[in-house]
Design a protein around this nucleic acid. Structure first.
Length: 838
RNA sequence: GCCCCCGUGGCGGAAUUGGUAGACGCGCUCGACUCAAAAUCGAGUUCCGCAAGGAGUGCCGGUUCGACUCCGGCCGGGGGCACCA
């Protein structure tokens, strides 16, 4: 009599849905019950659910079910991050409308998710590609626009001249478009930006409050925001150049100011551009700089190159000291001021540059005064030390010299201490069809004009063609050409759409509150937010999580939502991996192909499941074969959730065995008549094991250590199997079913019903561990001689030190180990060990 | 180059503050049931050794009565950022 998931899964899923078991109540949240908002990163509807989704949503589900059983009102919603490029690619390749393709995928994936029995509130399901989602997003965009947090400026993009589209950096491979293979150009386009840099300081400071985020993610965001303190100052040109009398530079090392041997400006610097107007050699150099690749590898190997402009700047501390001005390819226009001074003795890049162009390399920092005149070799000295060869700074530490230069610069009025950020404003314009239309109209007379609120949503036109390259919105004159909302003159809609990261920057708010007439209701959203536990892949550690934090803070600033940080707890789960297989010619084989391949098969490394390596395992046939619970159980077993999990046939079979084992325990108990068992007394040992397990599983689920909770349940099951029938055993079986319910909910319902449990096990209360049962009155004491274990003995709990020492000395093994020596020191840790030092 | 994380059996991994290393699972071995196989159940499984015993958490050293755990230095693997002044 096996547990049959084929019938049980569907049955219990139907019962939960019918009863609305997992529907979250806004009224109860926070009033009748404490609230818990559990969220997993919503999926992109790519076609089918993959194992990564299953793992991610299973973890969230266990936590959601566990919280419910602990009396929380739980919000656990699901939706679709439904805009994006793959839909347009599908449209081009398969001649299907992106909307149709997306909606079809959503239907498939929803059905797949439902088969896994997740405790989701489907009544709140949303898809970002629906006007009743993105229309509200347009309203929020206008709110930010009116608050001055949105602006428009020219910006360089990667332009694919064949596909006539903008490419993300990741889509440029070796300088060519990933799809067309055409050489990518750098083009300047007018684009919309969100002022995330306005929030740099608070986004950085806010990280300190996120104590339930992984340190790794906080660190990555900190580096991304990249705060640097330093000095910004003005270099005066000895002779004016193309109308400029000087330029500003930024440095984090003003203490090295007397080590300066040149100044350098970026190829895009206004002075460089002005010089190029009248000088073909400079113009040629600038063109050369532009051509260079932008990939990481190219930049790493790129040579430092410069062009001596012939101009000179005056050293701020010495009017008689001038420095040559170069245009240098390693100076970035969009960081700091786009210009630097070079101190080759203390900076590796400056050193390489100076060596190449024969510039002096003075030492101004030395480990000690005695090393003041030691020449700098192939490596710049960036360590701590004392300032040398620097006039009034000589003898100071790096820190005090730094402060002193800033103080003088400010006092003398030629510079000031400032902070520079690595973080750039967020460019949100995408020259794409399948995204949220930016609700702006461009009027020849009035310029950019917001679409009036009553005209929202600006709906994407359905009748678009993808035969031609480029953005179909630009060609759709009926949609594009509209009168200006201000002057009624002729105008055009903005044809760019929003970056899909905008869509995912507020979906968690819409889940919490979804009125028809606005993005969300403030009070209702604040009832649920912040998300108590957010779970997703570490690949979103920076962009999505930073954008969502920014968006939430922007809403707070304009008074729409009083929440500073959207995600109270964050967990980044590992990937699902699998063995890879190749045939004799190096072609990748699927696991099935590998098994039936006639020739030799090379078994490769364990890698992330991916289509290109053909090592994916589709969850659906696995669910068909083993049922949802076995798959869920496997996803939680073995590997710690933050690490990668290797899919294996053996693993899923082991999970299947355990599901059946649990069922056997429960069904045999049910046949026996459950709690009406009359023989035998209480089984104290089993009772202790039970309560220890209750405590351990609870603690481990709370800390998301699902692999340990799984181990706890295995142990309890084994202990029950080995125990003779007794009331304790009957109780342990019922409790085991409750403890396992968040992980294997279908089996648990079936077993619960068989055992005559009241209502649904999903609604059952999480058992409480009896503290008195967690400690036993006998403890095992380790006995060591010189720190090495020689014997163990059993003693009553709380036995006094002297008694333990005496027992240890009486042990035959200990006597032998001591070889007649008398211990000169005895360390006793009560209830733990005795260590005899001889 | 800079920053961060991780090295424990054949494998995935346990080990709350330094206190019996290897829980639990996979795999493997032996046994039971079976005509047989599958399934299931039982026993065993860090290494060397018949045993007594010894060694053992990447390597070297240190602190300690006692180190997987703390400190220093190496080696190996992984991740993030990347010409950020």
């Amino acid at each position: 009599m096996r547990f049959n998931p084929l019938t049980a899964d569907a049955h219990w899923q139907g019962v939960w849905e019918e009863r609305g078991t997992f529907r979250a109540s806004d009224e109860r949240a926070g009033s009748a019950r404490p609230k818990a908002y559990i969220l997993e990163m919503f999926p992109y509807p790519s076609g089918r659910i993959h194992m990564g989704h299953v793992r991610n949503y299973t973890m969230g589900d266990v936590l959601a079910r566990y919280r419910r059983m602990n009396g929380f009102e739980v919000l656990h919603p699901m939706g679709w991050d439904a805009f994006g490029m793959p839909a347009e690619n599908a449209a081009m390749e398969k001649k299907v409308h992106p909307g149709e393709w997306t909606r079809r995928n959503i239907n498939t994936m929803r059905a797949q998710l439902k088969r896994l029995g997740f405790a989701l509130d489907w009544s709140r399901e949303l898809a970002t590609c629906n006007p009743d989602y993105y229309g509200h997003e347009q309203a929020l965009f206008l709110d930010l626009y009116e608050a001055g947090l949105v602006y428009r400026r020219q910006s360089e993009v990667n332009w694919d001249p064949v596909d006539m589209t903008v490419l993300a950096n990741e889509q440029v491979i070796d300088g060519r478009g990933w799809r067309s293979g055409a050489l990518v150009e750098r083009r300047k386009l007018d684009q919309w930006f969100l002022k995330i840099t306005d929030f740099a300081e608070e986004l950085l400071d806010g990280l300190d409050t996120l104590d339930r985020w992984p340190d790794k993610v906080r660190l990555m965001q900190e580096n991304w925001i990249g705060k640097s303190g330093g000095l910004r100052f003005r270099f005066a040109l000895a002779e004016p150049v193309a109308g400029h009398e000087g330029f500003e530079v930024f440095t984090t090392r003003p203490d090295t100011i007397f080590g300066a041997s040149f100044a350098a400006i970026a190829p895009g610097h206004p002075i460089a551009l002005a010089l190029a107007e009248g000088d073909e050699a400079i113009a040629a150099f600038l063109a050369e700089c532009k051509r260079g690749g932008t990939t990481a590898a190219e930049l790493e190997t790129a040579e430092k190159r410069g062009f001596d402009t012939g101009a000179r700047v005056v050293h701020p501390f010495d009017p008689d000291w001038t420095l040559p001005v170069y245009v240098a390819n390693f100076v970035l226009m969009d960081y700091g001021t786009g210009a630097i001074f070079g101190a080759p003795g203390q900076d590796q890049r400056d050193l390489e540059f100076a060596r190449k162009y024969g510039l002096p390399v003075p030492r101004v920092v030395a480990p000690s005064v005695e090393q003041a005149d030691e020449p700098v070799g192939d490596e710049a000295y960036i360590g701590p030390g004392v300032i040398v060869n620097s006039r009034f700074l000589d003898g100071m530490s790096v820190e005090s010299a730094l402060a002193e230069v800033i103080r003088r610069a400010e006092a003398e009025g030629w510079g000031e201490g400032t902070t520079v950020w690595r973080l750039r404003d967020w460019g949100v314009s995408r020259q794409r069809y399948w995204g949220t239309p930016i609700p702006i109209v461009h009027c020849e007379g009035c310029g950019p004009v917001p679409v009036p609120r009553e005209e929202l949503p600006v709906v994407l036109p359905e009748d678009v063609a993808f035969e031609l390259p480029g953005n179909p919105l630009e060609r759709h004159s009926r949609w594009r050409d509209v009168p200006c909302p201000q002057c009624a003159g002729s105008a055009r809609r903005e044809t760019d759409t929003l970056d899909t990261f905008v869509d995912s920057s507020w979906y968690f708010i819409r889940f919490a509150s979804q009125p028809a007439d606005g993005p969300f209701d403030k009070a209702e959203a604040e009832r649920w937010l912040p998300v108590d536990q957010y779970i997703g892949g570490v690949e979103h550690a920076i962009l999505h999580l930073l954008y969502a934090r920014f968006w939430t803070r922007a809403l707070k600033r304009i008074g729409r939502l009083d929440v500073a940080e959207p995600f109270r707890g964050l967990f980044t789960q590992g990937m699902v991996t699998h063995l890879t297989f190749q045939d004799e010619e190096g072609r990748w084989l699927t696991p099935d192909e590998a098994a039936s391949h006639p020739g030799p098969v090379r078994t490769g490394r364990v890698e992330k499941m991916s289509k290109s390596k053909k090592n994916t395992v589709d969850p659906e046939p696995i669910v068909d074969q083993y049922g949802a619970d076995a798959v869920r159980w496997f996803m939680l077993s073995d590997s710690p959730p933050e690490r990668d999990l290797e899919w294996s046939e053996g693993g899923i079979q082991g999970s299947w065995r355990f599901v059946q084992r649990l069922w056997r325990l429960a069904s045999e108990e049910a046949e026996r008549g459950g709690s009406t068992w009359l023989g035998g007394g209480e089984d104290e040992g089993l009772g202790r094991k039970l309560h220890q397990t209750i405590a351990a599983v609870g603690a481990n689920v709370e800390s998301l250590a699902f692999n340990k909770a799984v181990a706890n349940l295995y142990e309890l099951a084994t202990a029950i199997e080995k125990a003779p029938p007794s009331p304790s055993r009957s109780k342990a079986i019922r409790t085991l079913v409750v403890l396992a319910a968040p992980m294997v909910p279908h089996l648990a319902e079936e077993a619960w019903a068989a055992l005559g449990g009241e209502g649904l096990v999903a609604d059952a209360a999480w058992p409480e561990a009896d503290p008195a049962m967690l400690v036993s009155d006998q403890v095992t004491i380790a006995v060591q001689v010189n720190g090495k274990l020689r014997d163990t003995l059993t003693a009553p709990k709380g036995a006094p030190r002297e008694a333990l020492e005496e027992m240890a000395l009486a042990s035959e093994k200990i006597v032998r180990s001591l070889e007649g020596r008398t211990p000169r020191k005895v360390i006793v840790v009560p209830d733990r060990l005795v260590n005899l030092v001889a």
